[in-house]
Design a protein around this nucleic acid. Sequence first.
DNA 1: TATTTTTGTGGAAACGTTTGCACAAACTTT
DNA 2: AAAGTTTGTGCAAACGTTTCCACAAAAATA
Lengths: 341, 341
Amino acid sequence: MSNDSKRTTIRDIAEVLNLSVSTVSRALQGNSRISKETIDAVKRTAEKMDYYIHGPAAALRKGHGNNIGVVVPRVDRQFFSNIIGGIEEVLRTNGFNTFIYQTQESYENEKSGVQAMLNAGVEGLMISVSVETKDISHINRFSRSGRPVVFFDRCMDDSETCRVMIDDFAAAYKATEHLLANGCRKLVYFGGTQNLFMYRNRREGFEQALLDHGFAPGDIHVIDGMLTRKKGYDSFRELYEAKQIPDGLLAASDFSALGSILFMKEVGISVPDDVCVVGFANESFTEFMEPPLSSIEQFAGEMGKKTAEMMLRRFTGVQSAETIILNSELKIRKSSQRTIK
Amino acid sequence: MSNDSKRTTIRDIAEVLNLSVSTVSRALQGNSRISKETIDAVKRTAEKMDYYIHGPAAALRKGHGNNIGVVVPRVDRQFFSNIIGGIEEVLRTNGFNTFIYQTQESYENEKSGVQAMLNAGVEGLMISVSVETKDISHINRFSRSGRPVVFFDRCMDDSETCRVMIDDFAAAYKATEHLLANGCRKLVYFGGTQNLFMYRNRREGFEQALLDHGFAPGDIHVIDGMLTRKKGYDSFRELYEAKQIPDGLLAASDFSALGSILFMKEVGISVPDDVCVVGFANESFTEFMEPPLSSIEQFAGEMGKKTAEMMLRRFTGVQSAETIILNSELKIRKSSQRTIK
DNA sequence: TATTTTTGTGGAAACGTTTGCACAAACTTT
DNA sequence: AAAGTTTGTGCAAACGTTTCCACAAAAATA
């Protein structure tokens, strides 16, 4: 494979300058025991000789490197890419590189990815699990290596873990109240898979809001497993064909909300006049679709920062598991606003 | 930092089984000189002792690892994330990990990223440069290490490099002809920065199509530097305020097309009746915005695969620089279709 | 039976760094 | 001027692998 014959090592620099490798190594690190002149000379020749550090060797000797792994379901969701942006920002300023791996929502890929990170010797892992993930032994394996793991958004319901999450319950509760305030009386909730903590929280927020407003448990209509546009489309069609059309829809994902709206357009159901819709995640397309979709803004960039900061805290010795819950905000747009009949 | 005291090494396995480290190493690799029984025993105990390879050490000794770096402007563009998907797919099946780094369109970040990849010891680099990038000495530095570099999409105009690109010229040409066929006579092109090869190609495709259809060079209206939604919005407003409203718009980016359309909606210009619009990249939002936006589908997944395959070819000794041009397809939607007056 | 070949294993060096320890030379302090 | 301290540098071991070389035992050939 790659022919490394060209690589300049500190030994080469040492020979050129008639120094020992230890001095060169120290000089490159700016060690205070080394004289200014030597440091300058070393750095100049290093530059001249096109030297760059051999990370793996340094990592081997030091016992740790400066790469941190991030595993996400998919990077093409604005939500995740914004989180990644936040993570990268704080990690970069702390001297770490961020390595990203996407699982494409596959449990198998997730296992490979986590293992690859372990093998690659990253210092820590931040992960948002796939929808398929029920078992986290692959992640526990990573933990057993003594390196920190921080979950974000898609967390497991395990109090032993470090987590950064949204106030999913509160967000869903608030969105539900908003639908009620706009005159909806027959609400449906399109949820995610129940093995993920956050989706359970959202569902509970929806249910609790209805209960608190005098609805009977039997009036609460929930359909789970709805994360994609296609699922949203199909599920709403089923409601339509069963003549069970609601007048308010809360979707745990902007994409399933989108799918539903596309179906409604086809059959002439008006949003928001016939059905009010609220999504989750505030993907940027929500703003310019027709009608613009109300959604829960989750401040993904902020979440990324908090996640990275929690990771850095692990490095400095904090041991106890912590959970951070971040606020969200309901962005009200046309899809859920109407004059009450 | 991470306390590695818990790590199991091949030496530990060797002690437990009363074998030498060399035998254990070979057994783990399935070397044919080692007996079936030994291999089984080693693998079983490795599993039991929770052993996983120390990648950096192996990389150090072997002179190469199995990680490959991908540097992209941003992962939240569908286009790029689909490319990444394609890359990961072929790399994974060939035993490589993919490390992704996003530059956020910043030249400084790009430099850090490429350097980080070099330090991390990746075996090769696939890169799509930032809009700010004019100089590629940082990438040449990587090349000088003897490792292959493959550019994709955002390539430099340098015949020494390996590249995978879209037929940008043909795509823009085709889209322009489509606008003409729909009765547009006063066309404007919103282009990208001219330091990038691909944007020059697109622009030339637009210009050539007009020339070939009898337009004078003076009739060709081009505005460059338009990659974002905001820029598209602002630029169209300028045209509007200068009373220079075109009847056809080709945008080098779906986002600038979107911005323009949002502005037109505000001032009551109808798409496609007053202005036909075609974008580039076929981001998924194009399909469900109002009206649906015609765009150039670039088959990003395919592009990713080709890019990764080219990289693998480098490893097996192919030396000469090659350029692959991929086909694109014009997706015609409502934004550019009208009955000719 | 004597020789050669195959099979399975071990010893030890090497990959490029970092760092604890040692030590000479140059300064301070008495 | 003797003792102590600081400053700048070098030696050598270590990190966890892989792989060249060697070599004994067993099997195949003569």
